[in-house]
């Protein structure tokens, strides 16, 4: 009896790589420091470093569009907004470096992590070519096969974002517009009133 042959030969085995370990440790350390720093300015600066680390992780996972967006918006625009906010309000003076740890909150978060974490055993391995998300020929396979001939964009992400799901992107633009209007209203800076 002939054993079944895999649909796609596995060139590289799944599993954690040294690059991933280094990036994950960096992101985890910056995340913990963001949570613990008492000085808000220090937390904002560390959070920008955290976003940069995440952008690198996205790039490693072959999502250059997401990585660029995270670097521009997460590390760039968000940091500017946060800095503007503490410039317009206050940066509480403090002698202590770290916040005291709130143990009841740790217990609640631990419970959350336990509940979500217990589902992870059921997931396929990261990068497994046989995972259902990659075997979905009707949707993912269709986009990959027809993106260039139907939309003229080599980048499948662009063609889905701007062509196949253009209406959703329009809805996203509406959300940004609404957020801009809401911010102007809240800050009392609407320029169209007389």
């Amino acid at each position: 009896m002939i054993p079944p042959v895999d649909a796609a030969p596995v060139l590289q085995s799944v599993g954690i790589t040294p690059i991933e370990i280094a990036l994950f440790v960096f992101v985890l350390i910056t995340a913990v420091l963001t949570a613990l720093f008492r000085d808000v300015l220090a937390a904002i600066v560390v959070f920008a470093a955290y976003s940069l680390g995440l952008a690198l992780i996205y790039t490693f996972y072959r999502a250059p569009d997401v990585g660029l967006t995270e670097a521009a918006i997460g590390a760039g625009v968000t940091t500017v907004f946060l800095l503007l906010t503490i410039a317009k309000t206050t940066r509480p003076a403090t002698d202590e470096l770290f916040e005291p740890i709130d143990w009841p909150a740790v217990a609640v978060c631990g419970l959350f992590a336990l509940v979500v974490g217990s589902t992870l055993f059921a997931f396929p391995a990261v990068g497994d070519p046989l995972s259902p998300i990659l075997q979905n020929g009707e949707v993912t396979g269709y986009y990959l096969a027809n993106a260039y001939s139907e939309t003229g964009a080599h980048n499948a992400v662009t063609s889905v974002l701007a062509a196949y799901r253009g209406f959703d992107t329009f809805g996203e633009a509406v959300v940004v517009f609404a957020a801009g209007i809401a911010s102007l209203l809240v800050l009392g800076r609407e320029v169209f009133t007389t």
Binding site: V10, I57, L144, V157
Partner: peptide, 14 residues
């Protein structure tokens, strides 16, 4: 993003 990853796969620039 990590659930979309495939070992040995390249970015979806077709």
């Amino acid at each position: 993003v990590s659930s979309a990853y495939r070992v040995g796969g390249s970015a979806p620039i077709v």
